[in-house]
Amino acid sequence: MMLGLVVSMVLEAAGRWRPLANDNLHDPESPAIGVLQEPAEALSQLPPDTSGNLVNWVKALEEGKINPRTNIRPETKVRIRDTDVLMTETGEMPVVRFPHKAHTMWLDCSNCHEQYFISKVGANPINMLKILEGKYCGRCHGAVAFPLTECKRCHSVPRNKIKP
């Protein structure tokens, strides 16, 4: 029984990231199979997570497990902002804390401002339906950044912890 469990756990771990030949996107006959890096090879080395790529990308960056390039052109200005925004109109859900730091480590200001988000507190009529449609935060969350099932990562501040 124990042996069975151990073996099944190993099998489960091996199946966590689909092999490219078996991912329903790549043509199994393509010459690229066997040349391209397999997801399991790279992703199993990074801080684990429970959703998305099963990698905590922000942690991977903060801990120096990865060091992705910030720019290609030497003249590009790399902008980082370290302020949090609290979004308090969240009904009965905890308040949303938006950390600029974690976002600007990856993105430039212009990726969100002013095309998707107006740079003024309260100026963006965001709601979960719009996010589920892929607008506002949903431009990335639910597509490439952690998915929308991870409610508490954004709705992270209990209302009674907010100073009036």
Binding site: L25, D27, N53, P68, T70, N71, R73, L107, C140
Partner: peptide
């Protein structure tokens, strides 16, 4: 030609989002 597969996971290990979506001008859709 067959369709292109672009893996975000592979690229984000090596480049931040801003390289393609800011410097190179890829629209996020």
């Amino acid at each position: 030609m067959p369709p292109v597969i672009y893996p975000h996971w592979f690229h984000r290990i090596r480049f931040r989002c801003k390289v393609c979506h800011f410097e190179l001008g890829f629209e996020m859709r």
